[in-house]
Amino acid sequence: MACVLVVMTIFALVIDRRSFLTAGLGYLAWLIWALASRSGEGLDWPVVLILIGGAVTALGAWWVPLRARLMRVLPDFPGKDRLPPYAKGAL
């Protein structure tokens, strides 16, 4: 499930849609809680929500530089020129 969420994040960066990630926030909360419960650490829900909030805030703060770097690294593909523009000079 973590791999699927990473792929969704990369796809959201490519299409430049932060709202695409909101669908995965509930799954992310469950995933963090399940992994912590399985490892015996037993994180409480407030800690899980703080971790998710921190991750979402960090992603939002670095969205433009991350997207610019990803778009420069990706090879040309059909439709790349029709995606929203990205800052070529960022990072």
Results as ranks from 00 to 15, higher is better:
G54A: 01
C3A: 07
F11M: 07
R17Y: 11
L13N: 00
V73M: 10
L91Q: 12
P78Y: 02
L49N: 07
L31E: 15
L5M: 12
C3K: 11
M71F: 08
E41W: 10
L43F: 09
A12K: 01
V6P: 00
L59G: 11
V14M: 15
G53M: 01
A58N: 09
I15M: 14
P75G: 02
A61V: 04
S19I: 06
L35E: 13
L59E: 00
Y86A: 05
T57L: 12
M1W: 08
S39K: 09
V56E: 07
Y86L: 01
T57Q: 10
I50T: 13
A2Q: 08
M8F: 04
S37L: 07
G26T: 08
R82T: 06
S37N: 12
G40F: 10
V14K: 14
L59R: 03
A90K: 12
S19T: 13
A87D: 15
L31G: 05
A34L: 13
A36G: 15
G24Y: 01
A58H: 09
V48C: 02
L83S: 12
W63L: 00
A2S: 09
L49W: 09
P75N: 02
W63A: 00
T57P: 04
S19M: 12
L49E: 08
G60K: 05
A90W: 13
F11R: 13
A90F: 11
R72M: 05
D44Y: 05
L51C: 04
A55C: 07
W62E: 03
A87G: 08
R38F: 05
D76M: 01
R38I: 02
R17D: 15
M1N: 13
C3F: 09
L28K: 00
W62P: 00
I10F: 14
F77G: 05
P78Q: 03
A58R: 12
L13F: 14
L35C: 13
L83I: 06
P85Q: 07
L35Q: 12
D76K: 02
R38Q: 07
V4K: 14
P75A: 04
V56D: 06
L83Q: 10
W62H: 04
L5V: 01
I52E: 04
G53I: 00
A58W: 14
A12P: 01
L21E: 09
P85M: 03
T57H: 09
G54N: 06
I32P: 00
I32S: 00
G53N: 02
V4W: 12
